[in-house]
Each structure stands twice: as C-alpha cells, then as structure tokens.
C-alpha cells in the first residue's frame, strides 16, 4: 500500500511543478532537434521537393534510408558518430544539471517554485549529482553483469545442446532480471538524489551507498514502487501506440492531432520521471528518517546562577 500511496503522491507532486515539466520538455526537445536537424537537413530538402516524401508517409520504404546513407558516403559516418556523441554528452550533462534543480523542489514540496531557486539548486547540486550519476553507471554495469551470469550459466548447461528452448527461456529470464535490476538501481538513485536534496550534503558516494542499502533493506517497497512506475510507463506506451495507429490511418488532416499526441506522450514520460523523484521524497523520510537535530543549548540567565 505504501508504494502505491507514494506513487500517487509523486504524480501529484510532479503535476504541481508544471513549469519544471515544461522546462524539461524544452530541454529534451532542444537536444533532439540538435540530433535530428542535421539528419533532416540531408534528407528533408529532397523529400520536400520529391513525390517520394508523400509516398514514404503512406508506406515507409527501407530503401530510402539506404539511399540516404549511400549518398552520404562512408566519410559521413565518423562525422555523424561524432555529432551523436557530442549530442549525447551534452544531453547527459544537461540532464544532470536540470535534475539538480528539479529534485530538491520535488523533495521539498512546501517550497514554492521559482526559477531563481531552481537554477540555484541546479548549480549547487551539479557536481554531487554528476558524481552520483557516475556511481550509478557502476551499479548498472553490476546489474548487467549479474544478469549476464544467468546467460553464462545457461550457456554452460545447455550451450552445446540441440535445443534452443532452455536458452530462449533463460534469455527471457535474463531480460526480465535485467529490467528489474535496472529499475531497482534507477529507483535507488532516485532515493539518493532526494537524500542529497533533503540532507543538504554533497556526499554523493554516501548517498549512493545509503540508497543501495535502503533498497536492500526494503526490497518489497522499492520493487513495488518501481513496478508502479513501470506499469504506468507501459500503459502510457500502449495507449500511445494504439491511438497513434488510429490517427496515422486517417490521413494528412490528422497530422496536427498526431503531433500533439506524440508530445503528450513525451510529457507523460517526463511527468513519470518527476513523479519517481516525488515518490522517493515521500518515502525517504519514512524508510530512513533523518537524524533528529540536537536541541539548542539552553541559555541560562544571570538569575539562574543565584545561589
């Protein structure tokens, strides 16, 4: 019940920070444009003047992608890869920076949102959050390795056999385990972000390890919290795919609603991301209360010294 309550509370907290949602949407869209526009600059001018553009919208033709890549030539590949890496690095650093601004405001719900507060938090928390992200990569790698053990075990047992079934089932199990482990790591890191925000410390390693310990000690709560968000994300994806498919078949007049639907889906994903931090903020004080602050020393008056 607790995870569900935290889930709903997180959704509410995120919803009440709409300007932050918009800022995140704007940032991701800007980065996406940075990645997409160079690609489209190569392809779109031709499509805009070619009847192929209309045809591709009705029935996508893989050959067009092959034409583009052939036209760009092998020399273009390093430039494209470089541009993609730069875009990815910018994106990740930017996301860390923005998370430093957003997480504290989601954790401390009573504080009103102000851009100044947001950017001040972002600047203050950038390095701790960046360190936390790097530590999380180690955890993701560990999760990957752990899931990989399943594959290796399956290979050792059935790799030389004539049946794919045991390996296929092991593959399903590995994928499921990987998804769960990644989810748990991600949720634990949400708690770590919140802990950094609430405690005001800059000790990201301590926050990271503390959150791993929290997840270890409260596996049920953490897992079910993650499961709530995973289910919500899956439901959003399903709804999007179904609705988009219906709009696609209706022709060009429905392009605007389709675009709106697409952006609504992007916003929904961002909302769920914020909600995860909000839910972690809801649960964190319950699962590991912050130490009570020491009482202030009583100030004795002169009359108290009278004998």
């Amino acid at each position: 019940m607790l995870p569900l309550i935290a889930f709903w509370s997180g959704l509410g907290r995120a919803w009440r920070r709409k300007r932050m949602l918009a800022l995140y949407w704007f940032f991701h869209t800007l980065c996406a444009m940075g990645a997409a526009l160079p690609l489209m600059a190569a392809a779109v001018p031709q499509l805009g003047r070619s009847r192929l553009g209309d045809e591709l919208l009705r029935q996508f033709d893989l050959a067009w992608l092959a034409e583009i890549s052939a036209a760009a030539g092998e020399a273009a590949a390093p430039a494209v890869i470089f541009a993609a890496l730069v875009a990815a690095a910018t994106l990740l650093l930017g996301a860390v920076f923005l998370a430093g601004g957003a997480a504290p405001l989601l954790a401390r719900e009573e504080e009103p949102y102000s851009p100044e507060e947001f950017w001040r938090n972002a600047g203050r928390n950038f390095w701790p959050y960046l360190r936390l992200s790097l530590y999380s990569l180690v955890l993701y790698a560990a999760a990957f390795a752990a899931a990989g053990l399943l594959t290796r075990g399956a290979e050792a047992l059935w790799g030389e056999g004539l049946e794919a079934k045991p390996l296929a089932l092991a593959g399903y199990a590995r994928l499921a385990l990987l998804v769960v482990l990644f989810g748990l790591v991600s949720t634990a890191m949400d708690f770590a972000k919140v802990r950094l925000a609430l405690s005001g410390t800059r000790q990201s390693l301590r926050a990271c390890l503390g959150s791993v310990r929290l997840a270890w000690r409260n596996p049920g709560v953490v897992f079910w919290l993650w499961a709530c968000f995973a289910a919500a994300a899956a439901a959003a994806a399903y709804a999007f795919v179904e609705l988009a498919a219906r709009l696609e078949t209706r022709g060009t007049a429905w392009v605007a609603p389709l675009v709106l639907l697409q952006q609504a889906y992007v916003l929904a994903r961002i909302w769920l991301r914020f909600a995860a931090w909000g839910a972690a903020a809801e649960l964190d004080p319950i699962l590991r209360p912050l130490p009570a602050s020491e009482p202030e020393p009583t100030r004795l008056e002169a009359a108290d010294y009278q004998i």
Partner: peptide
Amino acid sequence: DYNARLSTEWTLRVLFWAQNAMLWLTALV
C-alpha cells in the same frame, strides 16, 4: 514549390523519435 508541410511533418516525426531516444538515455542519470 517546396512542400513545407511535408518537410515539417517529416521533421516532427524524426524529432519525436529523437526525443524518445533522449529520454531513454537520460533515464540512466
């Protein structure tokens, strides 16, 4: 005539897939 509507539509489609790719990437940090 350059079909601006078509090229806009295509750009928005690619943009959407790029946004989703970005969101998957930033989920790691």
